[in-house]
Amino acid sequence: MKLVFDRPRSMRDKPMHFCPGCSHGIVHRLVAEAVDALGLRERTVAVAPVGCAVFMYEYMDFDVTEAPHGRSPAVATGIKRSRPDLFVFTYQGDGDIGAIGLAEIISAANRGENFSVVFVNNTVYGMTGGQMAPTTLLGQRTTTTPRGREAKTEGHPLRMAELISGLEAPYYVARVAVDSPAHIARARKAILRAFQIQVEEKGFSFVEVLGACPLNWGLSPTEAIKRVQEELIPYYPLEVFKDKSGAE
């Protein structure tokens, strides 16, 4: 029989700890596929986040280091600059990148560091139990916005991809989603493109992935996917905001 679907080489054969309907599993797989497609597994050093994806190294079969919450872009800078021959990416969540680590991501992007960022935006702090994230939508109820996020007191949800693409240096900035097979196919392409850009030594590449956190949204997996489509995508448009090579 012909094998038509298998685990990427860069993934371990291990059951994941994510909640049912969580997007991290899909994004992990897309990342592993891209690493394999470009033959990068044996020269990859990834930077794991603090948050629900902290156990990335349990599922990935390449070198992974931990980083303090928000500091991944600084850690990645240290790795890539001292060993430019390595393939380096950070995998970050919305609190990590948009709150505590805002200075690190903006500065690394602004320096045009030649590493890649995979940013999973699910509009909530997952691991700590569903608090407001910088990307939480207006009106969204979280454990720290029990009456819903209000612009007057909590500000507006941060559009990270737009923010990064406003900088001069970044080479590739895109936002994708993993709510449907068609969107997953586009997400796969975007991550591959981002990694390719690093391999070609062109500079900073950034992919924001809209994902679902059914647990902290208080929704079933199918309802959560509907929310991504009906609430997240209208506020966070799926676009390639910047691609200096002109190609998509």
């Binding site: 600084a74 850690v75 240290g78 600059r81 001292s82 060993r83 200075a103």
Partner: peptide, 25 residues
């Protein structure tokens, strides 16, 4: 490699990253 970092926090974490690769930092 010399980097003027955006903060002291970033500096120590860049050192951490360099050290991860075995570089004296």
């Amino acid at each position: 490699v010399f980097i003027q970092s955006e903060s002291e926090i970033a500096a120590i974490n860049m050192v951490l990253g360099a050290s991860v690769t075995g570089t004296r930092a």
